[in-house]
């Protein structure tokens, strides 16, 4: 019997090395090696930004966590770490369940390919097998509402049509853990309504949602837990009804 859907993050620290335009140049690097001691000591290695410091959290199936915090507080880095793209420098991340990062709708989308080809490609990237994609093709096509346009290249679509397609494919995966950077709002009013319903059902089906947003109303609407981040430090995971209290308290003791 496989374990239930869950996320466990313990003592997570993520540092982002910043390779400036200069340090990408081989000449600078070689010069630094050649000069060695004097100049080398001061400038060796690249600058590092500690994006997340000692973060702990536990989520279980049914948890819908809202991440709030100012720009640069580490929300996106946390989402990327949860998606498996960024590795922890310290601590551990353990996720049971199929992860669907909806951080960027345009992921794996090729504008010169047709709508159908894009559905296949994006589905493969999301971890579906060719057979799975073919089996769900009708459902996905119907959901886009693009009909005959699916046989045409994506670049001939309007921005809204492209967004419809990207959204349909990105949300076609049977995911257990859904990671979102801002709530996805695409297309015209009609489509927004369908998209909204789809996201809700996805959230219900998915065991866990982690949503980073600046929109507190949205968080109140969709989430039952909330976590506030500030300068890479996170508050404990809190019940949504204590949101006001969470906002009132300073996170860092001496801040």
């Amino acid at each position: 019997m496989s374990p239930p859907v869950s996320i466990r993050v313990s003592d997570l620290t993520v540092r982002l090395p910043v390779y400036g335009v200069d340090s990408k140049s081989l000449k600078k690097h070689l010069a630094r090696v050649a000069v060695g001691g004097s100049l080398g000591q001061a400038h060796h290695g690249s600058a590092e930004v500690t994006a997340i410091k000692g973060l702990n959290m536990q989520l279980k199936a049914g948890d819908r966590l809202g991440l709030i915090g100012h720009n640069g507080s580490g929300k996106t880095t946390l989402l990327r770490a949860l998606s498996g793209a960024y590795e922890p420098d310290q601590g551990e991340i353990e996720v049971h369940g199929r992860i669907a990062p909806l951080l960027d709708l345009s992921l794996g989308i090729d504008p010169s390919a047709t709508g159908l080809e894009n559905i296949r490609l994006r589905g493969r990237i999301a971890g579906m097998s060719s057979a799975e994609i073919e089996a769900r093709m009708d459902e996905i096509s119907a959901f886009t509402g693009l009909g005959p346009f699916l046989a045409m290249p994506l670049k001939s679509y309007s921005a809204g049509m492209q967004a419809r397609l990207a959204f349909a494919v990105a949300t076609a995966v049977d995911a257990d853990v859904l990671l979102m950077d801002e709530w996805i709002a695409v297309g015209d009013a009609d489509f927004q309504k369908i998209a909204h319903a789809r996201l809700l059902s996805l959230v219900e089906r998915a065991g866990i949602l982690v949503l980073a947003s600046h929109d507190l109303d949205l968080i109140r609407l969709y989430c039952n837990k909330v976590m506030r981040m500030e300068g890479g430090v996170a508050s404990p995971v809190t019940e949504i009804r204590k949101l006001d209290k969470l906002l009132a308290e300073p996170l860092v003791a001496n801040a």
Binding site: M1, G84, P88, E92, V95, G97, G207
Partner: peptide, 13 residues
């Protein structure tokens, strides 16, 4: 809700 997929990411060791 059960799942077979598992991801474990650890710090530098």
């Amino acid at each position: 809700m059960q799942t077979a997929e598992h991801m474990l990411r650890t710090g530098r060791r």
